[in-house]
């Protein structure tokens, strides 16, 4: 009997997720023993047609990392979905939209204009812009167009499971792989990590909180043994699913939220907004004017960028609108 087939794919992302797979180290041999890797563009030489030639559902599991940023990402997502029994969104970008999802705060034209014409290093004097059709040496090449908005994987195809993280932490991947090999996958739609938040795994001392002003981690009097948030450092830990063993706070860096919202949260960004604004004190609040309240919160800069760093495309509002 032939081994079950698995596939890995890299869509709109930085490639860190691929490295995370490699991080499995020797455990990857267990995977290779148990499965036949039929598709993994970054590691083995396979073509899209190899996948097209498979029967529907012939791939047992597909690990899909990266967001859906261009038409190619979308096309291959649909193809892999069709050919796979189990579709797993691997990493923050495919799970939530990820950091590239912040691109939804700009229109496609703004993004292209900035990247190709306005960055200090573009050096594009003729103002050339990418196009979707290119004729070279008499050959016409079609290139995938940038989509108008960034989507998470489940916006374009049905997703069975999610492995969160940027990149997914090793214990989470190991847990997922073990569950897969032992046939112990939970109910469809589950995020394959813990249910509790990062705080639950963070061993910094937490007290009853009241935050003054938001501060930055490089302020010199930060006590590494105490909760960063209660020292005024915006930390997404309380609004973020655990499983990472609080890797960032343990290294005295605030959590940025890559593991996404915990099960009952629905919306990671606004949950953290409400938590942090509930804590920030305004002096003599009864008499405070709107300006004073605004001033107290001014230290929270770029709120959407911070609170939705990984989850904008899967948030309630998803993107920037144009309200004239």
């Amino acid at each position: 009997m032939s081994k079950p087939k698995i596939a890995f794919y890299w869509a709109g992302s930085c490639g860190g997720c691929e490295v995370a797979v490699v991080d499995l180290g020797e455990k990857i041999y267990d995977v290779v023993d148990a499965f036949d890797i039929v598709f993994w563009p970054v590691a083995i030489d396979t073509k899209y047609d190899d996948i097209r030639n498979l029967e529907d559902g012939e791939i047992e599991v597909c690990f899909f990392n990266g967001c859906i940023r261009n038409e190619e990402n979308e096309e291959i997502a649909r193809l892999l979905r069709q050919k796979s029994k189990v579709m797993i969104a691997f990493g923050s970008c495919s799970h939530l939209g990820g950091i590239p999802g912040l691109g939804n705060l700009s229109s496609r034209d703004e993004t292209l204009d900035y990247v190709y014409r306005k960055t200090p290093v573009s050096g594009n004097e003729g103002g050339t812009m990418p196009c979707t059709t290119c004729v070279k040496d008499g050959n016409t090449i079609d290139l995938p167009a940038l989509r108008t908005e960034v989507s998470a994987l489940n916006d374009v195809v049905d997703v069975d499971y999610y492995i969160p993280g940027c990149p997914p932490p090793l214990p989470v991947i190991e847990g997922a792989v073990a569950a897969l090999m032992n046939g112990e996958l939970p109910r469809k739609g589950a995020v394959l990590s813990t249910e509790k938040t990062v705080c639950d795994e963070c061993d910094k001392e937490k007290r009853k909180k009241m935050v003054g002003k938001a501060r930055r981690i490089y302020d010199d009097d930060v006590d590494p043994s105490r909760c960063l948030l209660e020292q005024g450092i915006p930390c997404m830990g309380p609004a973020t699913r655990g499983g990472c063993e609080a890797a960032c706070p343990s290294a005295n860096m605030p959590c940025t939220g890559c593991m996404g919202p915990p099960p009952a949260s629905q919306e990671q960004g606004s949950r953290m907004v409400t938590a942090i604004t509930s804590l920030i004190g305004v002096e003599n609040e009864r008499e405070a004017t709107a300006e004073e309240v605004a001033e107290a919160l001014a230290s929270l800069r770029d709120p959407v960028g911070f609170f939705y760093m990984y989850s904008l495309p899967t948030s309630f509002l998803k993107r920037r609108y144009n309200d004239e």
């Binding site: 705080c199 007290r207 009853k208 938590a275």
Partner: peptide, 28 residues
């Protein structure tokens, strides 16, 4: 509180005007 989901961040504690919140150190 759904204690299966509470991560023990203690944000709610200082908000309660009635001191109804009590942090269970043992269970976190």
């Amino acid at each position: 509180v759904d204690t299966d989901l509470c991560g023990g961040c203690r944000i709610c504690e200082s908000l309660c005007p009635f001191d109804a919140h009590h942090f269970n150190e043992e269970k976190g």
